[in-house]
Write a protein that binds this DNA or RNA. Structure first.
Lengths: 253, 253
DNA sequence: CGTTGGGTTGAGATTGGTCAAAATGGGTGG
DNA sequence: CCACCCATTTTGACCAATCTCAACCCAACG
């Protein structure tokens, strides 16, 4: 069950448009061209695969409501999420130029996607080179996020990983207007999901959360995460928002 | 000291052109335009920073000879490599559209780079949209590689991580013609470097290598890695080369 | 030769994993 | 409104992979 009030169809301005406007540095004409591509909606229940690892993808998905994740599955059942997706995120840019996905997208809650035809998007890119640049930029930002998360997986403690993740989610959700105040968000995911993002065990996530709570770094009840002192959480985790590139695309000048 | 015989300047066809030709699906005209950008060379000694995390980058580096790595440094000295770079690899595509690098590139051996002016590359992209698509594709492939390595960091044992890395290097170096036979490569890096790629300690890398040697999965002497039975190593590590996308860019048709 | 940068080894500490059971809590059907 | 069910969270006891620290070795090189 999604935890956001209004169905995405009715949201005045959807979070993807919001991101485009605030980050992409496009003209109204180009934004309109992209908006025109996003007419089709798809609703998917929680815990389903959106794209699986196979087949030449013909559609790009943009998450408008709910939470999803990019996942890599091992044959023996191990799972690692490479990204948490929140409203406004493109799920599978790579589908544009890659033959086969090598990681899938799964919903964590009920989700609403905008489904964009790959062929049409390519047409728009040809008509408006700046749109192509924005797509490349999105790919680069993802790169940056993957790199950062990788550093955390490789070198950070459980405590740092979880704290860092929370800082990131706070920043991202705030950016698309889904934070409540400046330090509280809805976190409609289970501890098992957290474990698949952070590369830990559910049990260890649980214990680590308890420590964070005991240190009063977070308050986490039900699906609501509150951070009493964001700066302190950032310090504990070494989080700095630079890698999210919330200051937008670099102009070509 | 680079371990490859001929200085890159004298190599008949450089590994980057080779990759472009085999992967990018470009016409001769476009390839020529790119080649024309790659006239400037830069030689850098081992263990130096090529790009650091700051400043609006004005140049893109393509590695022609030697080994390098993308790295993320923690304030307290911890380090994680997010990618090993071998000849033919672009070091910093993101420089095109990103304001500030959030991870640096460091040389592991003496290196030769082709230095491409960002402005000129953007001009070529404008003139030939297909070149822009290839750049995006490169970014997507990197994404895919990061995702895979991330899954290994999050969920694989030390043994699997190292074995997987070796499989990957074998495949990549073979692709640019730097493997000797089909199962031997030069590995001009220290165990400490391996530890920074795999998120382990140098000591543990050492012990794990010994196990791999004892199991006759690898032979590793000096800086030469030989894999007696590549299939077995792939099996042990769960490696499949799909994520490297060595079958090239997807055509737009 | 002496120095130095890897590589190797050992002993002991720790973080995080495993397995299994118990508690909690929201949602559903009666 | 209650009883039950399931998923999720929490707890406990124990274990294993990996880390830490420190020493030692060895080959390359000045």
């Amino acid at each position: 069950m999604s935890s956001f009030a209004a169905p995405a169809d009715k949201v005045a301005i959807n979070p993807f448009s919001l991101k485009l406007r605030r980050l992409a540095g496009l003209g109204e004409q180009e934004i309109a061209a992209i908006d025109a591509l996003c007419h089709e909606r798809r609703h998917i229940a929680a815990n389903r695969e959106v794209t699986s690892e196979s087949a030449e993808p013909e559609h790009i998905h943009v998450l408008l409501d709910g939470w999803a994740a990019r996942q890599k599955l091992f044959p023996d059942g191990r799972r690692q999420f490479s990204a948490l997706l929140v409203p406004g995120d493109i799920c599978d840019v790579d589908g544009l130029f890659i033959r086969r996905y090598d990681c899938g997208v799964a919903t964590l809650t009920a989700c609403t996607f905008a489904v964009i035809s790959r062929a049409e998007l390519l047409r728009v890119i040809n008509a408006f080179p700046a749109v192509g640049h924005v797509i490349t930029w999105f790919a680069c930002v993802e790169n940056s996020m993957l790199t950062t998360r990788m550093a955390m997986l490789g070198r950070a403690s459980a405590r740092e990983r979880i704290a860092h993740l929370f800082c990131e989610l706070l920043a991202r959700l705030q950016f698309v207007g889904l934070a409540d105040g400046d330090s509280t968000i809805q976190l409609p995911i289970t501890q098992e999901t957290l474990s698949d993002v952070t590369g830990l065990t559910p049990v260890h996530v649980n214990r680590t959360l308890q420590v964070l709570r005991a240190n009063e770094l977070i308050r986490l009840e039900g699906h609501r995460l509150a951070v009493p002192d964001p700066d302190r959480l950032r310090q504990v985790s070494g989080f700095s928002p630079d890698y999210l590139h919330l200051d937008g695309i670099r102009q070509r000048a």
